[in-house]
């Protein structure tokens, strides 16, 4: 069985612990053995930079090194963790001096950042690690009669260096949704507007103003549900009129799990799936 290192970000914590369940069950359904990188630390969330940017590089070099020690690649379902860890990898791989300085300290824990592990997010994991054919083979039933609007979130498409798909015309999420049997609503107003999550604790009103926009756009275009790969987008946007789910939750259902088994019942806005 193929193995992958699961990076635990804050999206697995407290009220969001079900995100870990969703993730591990998703990997199981795809025939992948997920190894939790238990000693991994916060990616910095774009906030540790406000104290010390070098610590962000250090923490993520260490996170990647933990995966490398296990001989696995690193996978996170979170858009932001993905973007920050992938950005760190680029910084380390292009700056041998920084890499050497960090490695000197990592040696205390018996770790080394080699730069071998790849960084995956659900979208590129399905395409490049699991493979779309294997993905389709793993699906057991169709979720029919439901119109789904794909919502990527920002950090898998920007900055360009870490984008998992063509930022001009991303199609990956659509390609992942279609085999589920759902009808994909590909174009809608504000489909690229940010969910606002990162303003939650500094300017919550700003977050609220943004979160509603893609949801309203999707609703107007006739979508029953919005599907995002990102647990933070999900958290920021759940609870409004238009329901939002994580794409891994839909995949789990198509692999035979009940909505409850993949935490769909925990949604603030109720979702009805005909299966």
């Amino acid at each position: 069985m193929k193995k992958i290192g699961i990076y635990p970000g804050c999206c697995f914590q407290g009220a969001d612990e079900h995100n870990y369940e969703i993730t591990i069950r998703f990997l199981e359904n795809m025939g992948v053995d997920g190894i939790l990188l238990e000693r991994a630390a916060c990616c910095g969330g774009g906030v540790i930079d406000e104290s010390n940017k070098l610590v962000v590089y250090g923490l993520n070099a260490r996170n990647i090194a933990l995966a490398e020690k296990e001989g696995v690649d690193l996978y996170t379902p979170c858009n932001t963790c993905y973007m920050i860890i992938a950005k760190t990898k680029l910084a380390l791989d292009s700056n041998p001096d920084l890499k050497e300085q960090v490695n000197k300290i990592l040696a205390d824990e018996g770790l080394e950042y080699k730069g071998e592990a790849k960084i995956y997010h659900t979208l590129n994991l399905l395409r490049d690690f699991i493979g779309m054919d294997n993905y389709k083979k793993a699906l057991k039933r169709e979720i029919s009669g439901v119109k789904v609007a794909p919502y990527y979130g920002c950090h898998v498409l920007a900055p360009n260096e870490v984008a998992v798909d063509d930022p001009d015309n991303p199609t990956l999420l659509k390609e992942i949704l279609e085999p589920l049997g759902v009808e994909v609503i590909d174009e809608y107003q504000n489909q690229n507007t940010c969910c606002g999550y990162h303003a939650t604790y500094t300017d919550n009103a700003q977050k609220e103003r943004l979160a509603i926009k893609p949801l309203d756009g999707a609703k107007e275009a006739g979508a029953d549900i919005v599907a995002t790969p990102c647990p933070l987008c999900h958290k920021a946007m759940d609870g409004k009129e238009e329901p939002i789910l994580q794409v891994t939750q839909l995949i789990n259902v198509a692999c035979g799990m009940t909505p409850e088994e993949t935490a769909i019942n925990l949604n603030k806005t109720e979702v009805k799936l005909s299966i």
Binding site: P8, C10, Q13, G14, A15, D16, R39, A40, A41, C42, G44, G45, V47, I48, E50, S51, N52, V55, L59, Y201, T202, D203
Partner: peptide, 26 residues
């Protein structure tokens, strides 16, 4: 302000536990 307090708290809890404490963050 909210952001400078967030930044300090974030750093502190990551230092103490490895993760941001989202329960006490608000």
């Amino acid at each position: 302000n909210s952001a400078t307090r967030r930044a300090k708290f974030w750093f502190q809890t990551v230092y103490e536990t490895g993760q941001i404490d989202k329960y006490n963050l608000p």
